[in-house]
Nucleic acid binder design. Structure first.
Lengths: 131, 131
DNA sequence: TAATATTACGTATTACGTAAAGATT
DNA sequence: AATCTTTACGTAATACGTAATATTA
């Protein structure tokens, strides 16, 4: 079993319609059908009632759907959490000031910022009254 | 990302040795290496320190390992839970009794069993003292 | 030198798409 | 008849293994 099976299954369970599900997944309908069949075969339980053309979750399908949603949500969160470990792109903070003020007025704030974000660059820029 | 990536990663993290990990996984070492690389590429973060030959988890790797273990555990439980929905194979309970007792003595227990497990078959069998 | 990890490349598995058939409303 | 699902089959993507290279103790 792979996460792909769960993605397909959850989408089909949401739409209760293989065609719309395959459209959402941007793959063909037979591909979804086959992956669903493989999943059911591995689980040893049908997830949908197939007798009627109208798809309907079996009790097993209901139970598995909750787990599948949970697993996909957790996996997405795990991946997203890793972005916090990515070395940040070097960012630039540009601070504009006008003539009558002296840069030293900003020094404490700049020092605090520099300590909390040592990777970032600070640019000071004197600006004309017009902007 | 697929569960396969997590399986490989967890095994390598457990062994801290790609060779032993690949042996446990019953696949070749390069296959593991490549899947790990793909995973790291998707996450945008190295999971192991590669500078030393000795593998060591990065902070990101430590964090991701917990999630990976959790996801694999939950997926296994979800699959296992589905077995409860499988139609049971027909089982047979054979009850042996000896002559001085009458079958009616067992009737309440048999009735209770029959109600809780209607799919199962009960066989009564009078047994000689020897067995 | 020995042990391990990575890269290169050919192969085998398999997921996918298209086309056809089957089933249901 | 129309819509949807499944089956059949060829193709494309990719996971894998073998061999070669690189790196480290």
């Amino acid at each position: 079993m792979e996460l792909r099976h769960l993605r397909y299954f959850v989408t089909v369970a949401k739409e209760l319609n293989g065609s719309r599900a395959s459209a959402r997944l941007r793959i063909s309908q037979p591909a979804v059908s086959r992956q669903l069949r493989d999943l059911e075969e591995e689980l040893g339980v049908p997830l949908f009632h197939r007798g009627n053309s109208r798809l309907k979750l079996t009790p097993a399908g209901e139970a598995f759907l909750a787990h599948a949603r949970d697993l996909l949500r957790r996996s997405n969160e795990a991946v997203k959490e890793m972005t916090a470990f990515r070395p940040q792109a070097r960012r630039t903070l540009t601070v504009g000031y006008r003539a009558p003020w002296r840069v030293t007025t900003l020094t404490p704030a700049l020092r605090a910022f520099g300590q909390s974000s040592p990777e970032d660059e600070v640019v000071l820029r004197e600006m004309a009254p017009g902007g």
